[in-house]
């Protein structure tokens, strides 16, 4: 059986390598990615339409805002699903066969905790920078949210999970994840109420004292903040449940 699997894998690998030579040269002007009229439109008009220097963010949060909104929903659902599965199965199937060293209660290490104490403000500030500068430089809600969530995970790793849960309980995390999606969809709905289409941020210029282009610029920051809320809290909720099989006590 293993030999058959190996043969199939090798065959498919060879097929993929054979197909790979049909790819255009990287960065070639005539490659489909560069030659398509859509790319030309984005490259030429993103700065004019939205005043956003980072094209990637403009495509992600504005031109394809609907797509990104449901990406955020997917993250939310993934978090909910992991928690639901672990709460049901993890707590029951508690086999005593697996003994962990961490079951012995140990004092948090002095050096580790003090290093983390110094690091966490820097990490969180960087997360805010990545989030706020998402439309100027690489970054945005997803990356900033993950970095922010990682800082909470770091608290749980350096001390223990209860200390991190004191700062952000799983229930509150899930609630805030929903708030993030509400922020995103709310901005979309609000622009609909102002006479545009769903997620047509330009209409926000009716209430903001800025031009239609700058309204799109600022609304993009708004939806990125929504994404960051969801990603931060879902990352932490997933970690808290994964590391304790849904029991939320002890920890690694």
């Amino acid at each position: 059986m293993k030999k058959v699997a190996l043969a199939v894998t090798l065959f498919i690998g060879a097929l993929l390598l054979y197909a790979a030579k049909d790819f255009s040269v990287w960065g070639h002007l005539q490659s489909p990615a560069s030659a398509s009229p859509v790319s030309k439109h984005f490259i030429a008009d993103t700065g004019v339409d939205t005043e956003v220097p980072n094209m990637v963010t403009a495509v992600l949060a504005d031109y394809r805002g609907f797509d990104t909104m449901f990406e955020t929903v997917v993250i939310f659902i993934a978090g909910i699903a992991i928690i639901a599965i672990l709460r049901r199965t993890g707590a029951d199937a508690d086999s005593p066969a697996i003994q962990r060293e961490s079951d012995v209660v140990a004092e948090p290490d002095l050096i580790v905790t003090n290093t983390v104490r110094l690091l966490i403000p820097v990490i969180q500030l960087f997360a805010f920078y990545v989030l706020a500068h998402g439309h100027v430089s690489p970054g945005g809600g997803f990356q900033g949210g993950v970095i922010m969530g990682a800082s909470f995970i770091l608290v749980a790793l350096a001390w223990d999970l209860p200390k991190a849960l004191d700062r952000l309980s799983v229930d509150r995390a899930i609630m805030l994840a929903g708030v993030g999606i509400l922020i995103y969809a709310g901005i979309g709905l609000f622009s609909m109420l102002l006479g545009g289409e769903f997620l047509d941020y330009a209409e926000l210029s009716h209430v903001l004292p800025v031009s239609r282009e700058m309204a799109r610029y600022h609304a993009m920051l708004g939806v990125e903040i929504g994404v960051a809320f969801t990603v931060t809290t879902v990352m932490f909720a997933i970690y808290a449940n994964l590391s304790t099989r849904g029991r939320l006590e002890g920890g690694l």
Partner: peptide, 30 residues
């Protein structure tokens, strides 16, 4: 390759958080 946004996401999600998730899971299985 110049895809800095993708690289950033890969560094944060792929190398950072998902590695932590995998390790957290390994500690709870054999």
């Amino acid at each position: 390759m110049g895809a800095v946004d993708v690289a950033f996401t890969e560094a944060a999600v792929g190398a950072g958080v998902s590695a932590v998730f995998l390790v957290a899971t390994v500690f709870n299985v054999k």
